[in-house]
Design a binder for these strands. Structure first.
Length: 990
RNA sequence: GCCCCCAUGGCGAAACUGGUAGACGCAUUCGACUUAAAAUCGACCGCUACGGCGUGCGGGUUCGAAUCCCGCUGGGGGCACCA
């Protein structure tokens, strides 16, 4: 780019004579020079405790305080960056540079999350192997990020697709597969529940300490290998799930719950998703539900994200209650789950989900007196139920959502006995009851639940109210009866007593109790009668972990001829992706619910069929042909930065303890983890939940010594932008739109090529034609101005509108600072070496104190404002004094590092300021010589006094009363509040 | 439907535990320099009938509220047949 072009476009133009003016061209020259210098000198190398990773001077950590700052690593998309993407990276970089200047050993690096759908789709389009396009994208992204001046230790960069990384991802999977969750054992952090090696479970089975589910009374060694495998599968933390999963024919893969939208469609591609029973890998994350909630208290995360995780996990406390059902095949126990056992008295029917096993035992004939409306017109319950089940199975998740509220269902011909009252209740099946929540069966209480009420109305079932509003609420039950249920967790129980000796031989009355007391009383009664128990349920589902994709990590699992899964030994890892003739996923008609997934890896028979010796001689096995989801690589990458080339460990223990262990520095706490993790809030329940889960498993198993991966989480805001549409709703290029005169109602108007266009506000995006790229910013302003602008726009955690016009403010600040040091015409350094005058001394020390506080609080926007104030003061002096300029340059360095380095070197320093100590305020000069004291009468400012900051309160009161004497009219004030030296507040007499 | 967050000049925003509302920047206007323009430097920069009034609206607590409490309105986000 030539100077002319930059001049023509840049609002900050330069005359020919000022050869040493700080403009876009000069900025670029400086920036590239310093980027090369940093790289050549290893300026940002972080020092490990031992091993080959030392700092740029060859030293190890040697007891220095560690600080680990990390970004949510990017997916290397081929689309390139816009100015919204790097906001978080810049924030992390500013913090990293600041901590480095505080003398800490800072670990800051960037990796690439490189498996996943887009690379695969792009590869299918271009016919190139995904590895090729992915590596190109990574190279391009590296270049763009380097140009920003991010202070990464590039020795520690890696991509999740590298065999040396995949190996450990597979290794972790193996550890999870090879473990089970023991809810009765304390984990190392002291709370209940702990992952244990599966071998310890086998020992319990073998010794008889634990009964073998489904094989009670049999010896473990008497079971076949397939039987043992099936038993263990029910315990393993990574297991083969046979329950319904989300099958997406349009994508040709199964998906995790988290990847399905509220509309029941795939988050990627927006295809319908069906519930299908397919054998798929699943992770038992639900076992960790309680700890994942509980341990949020030990970490420093935004409340919003903690709340989202709590809601997502959805822990609810209630009771499981056994209802007896008489079927033609004999008596069955139907377990229901309820959060309101106090409403057992108001139960008028039961509902089981269409997938419920009880439906295998429905009778041939409708019982006598079955109302017409309950049968759906079917001649027999068998037929009715079979048809309803088939219809439910054919529904997409979307259909279910669309039909929500509209209750469908049928009577099953079965009756259940209420264990507390002995009353016979009809059992229905309806798809508003979900098989995978609670027990897949409910007791319906239409008097207290809207859904049950709707169902009762539709099928003509009775409504019994057992709870009424609190007496002082002003409401009564008659406000609800016949119109709606009284849905409340508050209230008083009514009409809820049995004195029959039907089940337990004694009376239970909860009449008049508050709901929470009644819940406890009924739960206790149920436990005593052995017909139920208190229990906890989670909204969270187990994590579906396999995908029918090419571009992901293969599972380290092979199957023998009987279909029994075996781990591939660690020594054989990594298992690399095979070459296949076609790596595109096998997709189907998006609505074809009956299609079956076909994994691309199955297309290479030579790879699938292997002969291995797993300890009992060479045998033929079949490899698992699924791949892991995109989340696998991002679940543990933070640990790999500590030494990405360690071939002996996932992470070495000493390095872990130094960088991430419990109490590894002053702020880490027992939970340990990354000191600062910055990224978008969109990962609140996906990546951040999965990572915490894996980390806890590894913690329980003793591979890491702290129980949380990320100690402090920070969500940066989004950069938003205006977009413009013409009459037809087409987007027009935002940078060609001109603002016109306001219209009649005072609203601004906009035109593009003479025609009126509409303005809308939202994301930046290529399709919205409002993209501004970092490259544009480098060309027109330089990376430092770009950084400065993004950091000064507003608070880091808030979204804010991009406005290229406002960028000049930052550029002018840097230019003024430059001119305070460098003569624009000669290039000479022009600072004075005289001592600071009193005013400058005060301002400098106050600025140091303030900026330090702002940096500690991650408020670069206000830090910048204070640096500008200081610089504006220096600009007003004949020559700026070195004693003020140098600290100013140092304080600017985290935000605009290149110009700071350049000025620092022009000021005569021959080493980088990256590790130069952060300026210290001299306490003697912090504070003000005089402050303005305000005199208020009834809160209104009536006088201002210039006083000493340490004025005596009595003296200040005397001065204040004198200043407003005329307003008080000689009447002694009723009350005077003195907060020296700032405020005197007077309440006048009368 | 349930849960959470936010609202300050023409614009982006400051204001730490309640204590001078509008720091800093953008834009606008004016002045200096210049033949002129740009750049630069400087000034002004919420409204005002000059009494005051002002932090989305209406109340409350307090000597004092952008900040705390209650009730609205508007905007954003999360979850959504989870018993």
């Amino acid at each position: 780019m030539s100077d002319n072009q930059s001049g023509a476009h840049s609002p900050v133009n330069e005359p020919e004579t000022a050869r040493f003016r700080y403009n876009a061209a000069m900025a670029q020259q400086i920036e590239e020079k310093w980027q090369d210098t940093w790289e050549g000198q290893g300026t940002f190398w972080a020092a490990n405790v031992s091993g080959s990773l030392t700092d740029g001077e060859g030293r190890h950590a040697d007891g220095r305080t560690s600080f680990f700052a990390m970004d949510m690593f990017p997916y290397p998309s081929g689309k390139g960056l816009h100015v919204g993407h790097p906001l978080g990276y810049l924030a992390t970089d500013v913090v990293s540079r600041y901590h480095r200047m505080k003398g800490e050993n800072v670990l800051h690096a960037m990796g690439y999350d490189a498996f996943g759908l887009p690379a695969e789709q792009f590869a299918v389009q271009t016919g190139q192997h995904p590895r090729v396009t992915t590596e190109q994208n990574i190279a391009n992204m590296r270049r763009q990020l380097r140009r920003m001046g991010l202070s990464f230790d590039d020795r520690r960069s890696f991509a999740t697709i590298e065999p040396g990384y995949v190996r450990w991802t597979q290794w972790i999977f193996s550890r999870i597969f090879d473990s089970w969750y023991d809810p009765d054992k304390r984990n190392p952090s002291g709370s209940m529940g702990c992952a244990r090696p599966i071998g310890e479970l086998v020992e319990q089975f073998r010794s008889g300490e634990r009964p073998i589910d489904g094989h009670e009374g049999q010896a473990w060694d008497a079971l076949s290998e397939a039987e043992r495998s099936d038993v263990l599968n029910e315990y393993r933390l990574a297991y083969i799930s046979k329950s319904p999963v989300n099958w997406c024919p349009g994508l040709g893969t199964v998906l995790a719950n988290e990847e399905v939208t509220a509309e029941g469609r795939s988050e990627r591609g927006n295809f319908p998703v069906f519930q299908r029973e397919l054998r798929q890998w699943s992770m038992r994350i639900t076992a960790y539900g309680h700890r994942l909630i509980e341990d949020l208290n030990a970490i420093d995360w935004p409340e919003k994200v903690k709340l989202m995780q709590r809601n997502w996990i959805g822990e609810s406390h209630g009771a499981s209650v056994d209802f007896t059902v008489a079927t033609p095949q004999g008596e069955r126990t139907m377990e229901i789950y309820t959060t309101r056992p106090d409403t057992l008295f108001g139960t008028t029917f039961c509902v089981v989900s269409p997938e419920h096993p009880l439906l295998a035992d429905v009778p041939e004939q409708w019982p006598d007196g079955t109302p017409e409306a309950w049968t759906g017109g079917y001649g027999s319950p068998r037929e009715a139920v079979a048809d309803y089940r088939a219809a439910a199975a054919a529904k997409t998740a979307k259909d279910r959502v669309d039909d929500a509220g509209e209750k469908t269902g049928l009577f099953t011909g079965l009756y259940a006995t209420n264990p507390i009252t002995g009353v016979q209740l009809p059992v229905f099946t309806a798809d508003y009851v979900l098989m995978d929540y609670g027990t897949g069966a409910i007791m319906a209480v239409p008097g207290g639940d809207q859904r049950d009420y709707d169902f009762a109305v539709k099928f003509g079932l009775p409504v019994i109210y057992t709870v009424q509003p609190l007496p002082d609420s002003g409401e009564t039950l008659s406000d609800y009866e016949g119109k709606a249920p009284f849905v409340s967790h508050d209230g008083v129980v009514i009409n809820s007593s049995v004195d029959a000796t039907w089940k337990r031989g004694d009376a239970l009355s909860i009449d008049g109790m508050r709901v929470d007391d009644a819940v406890r009383a009924v739960t206790a009664w149920l436990e005593e009668a052995q017909v139920g128990h208190g229990t906890t349920s989670y909204r969270l589902r187990d994590w579906l972990f396999s995908r029918q994709r090419y571009w992901g990590e293969p599972f380290p699992v092979v199957y023998d001829d009987e279909g029994v899964p075996h781990l591939v030994p660690d020594s054989m890892l990594p298992i690399n992706l095979p070459d296949v003739p076609d790596y595109s996923p096998k997709t189907f008609d998006p609505d074809d619910a009956q299609s079956n997934p076909e994994a691309p890896l199955s297309r290479n028979a030579e790879w699938v069929d292997v002969t291995l010796d797993l300890g009992d001689g060479p045998k033929t096995y079949h490899r698992d042909t699924n791949t892991m989801p995109n989340w696998a690589g991002s679940c543990w990458y933070y640990m790999r930065y500590l030494d990405p080339h360690d071939e002996r460990h996932m992470v070495e223990r000493d390095e872990y303890d130094y960088w991430m262990g419990p109490k590894h520095n002053a702020t880490a706490g027992e939970a340990g983890g990354v000191d600062l993790y910055i990224g978008g809030v969109e990962h609140a329940v996906l990546h951040l939940l999965y990572s915490r889960f894996w980390h806890k498993v590894l913690f329980d198993l003793g591979y890491v010594d702290s129980f949380e991966p990320f100690h402090k989480l920070f969500n940066q805001g989004m950069i938003q932008a205006y977009a413009y549409t013409d009459d037809r709703g087409q987007y027009v290029p935002a940078d060609e739109v001109e603002e016109g005169e306001p219209d009649a109602s005072g609203e601004p108007t906009f035109t593009w090529r003479g025609q009126r266009v509409n303005r809308e506000f939202g994301k930046m995006g290529k399709s919205l034609k409002n993209i501004v790229t970092p490259d544009y910013m480098y060309d027109h302003y330089g990376a430092d101005t770009f950084r400065l602008y993004e950091m000064s726009m507003g608070p880091l955690d808030e979204s804010r509108p991009w406005n290229t016009r406002n960028v000049v403010g930052g550029m002018r600040f840097l230019q003024r600072l430059w001119r305070n040091v460098v003569d624009e015409h000669t290039g000479q350094t022009v600072v004075s070496d005289e001592a600071l005058d009193a005013k400058t001394l005060k301002l400098l020390n106050n600025t140091i104190a303030d900026v330090t506080a702002e940096m500690e609080g991650m408020r670069p926007n206000t830090a910048i404002a204070k640096l500008i104030v200081l610089n504006n003061h220096l600009t007003g002096m004949e020559r700026a004094p070195r004693a003020a300029v140098e600290p100013l340059v140092l304080m600017l360095a985290p935000i605009a590092p290149h110009i700071a380095e350049e000025l620092w070197s022009r000021l005569g320093h021959d080493t980088s300021l990256a590790h130069h100590p952060w300026p210290q305020a001299d306490e003697r000069y912090v504070g003000q010589d005089s402050v303005t004291a305000v005199v208020q009468i009834k809160g209104k400012v009536r006088a201002k006094l210039e006083v000493s900051p340490d004025i005596d309160p009595d003296e200040l009161e005397r001065m204040a009363l004198e200043a407003v004497a005329s307003r008080l009219g000689g009447v002694p004030p009723r009350k005077v509040i003195v907060k020296a030296p700032k405020i005197v507040s007077i309440v006048p007499g009368q």
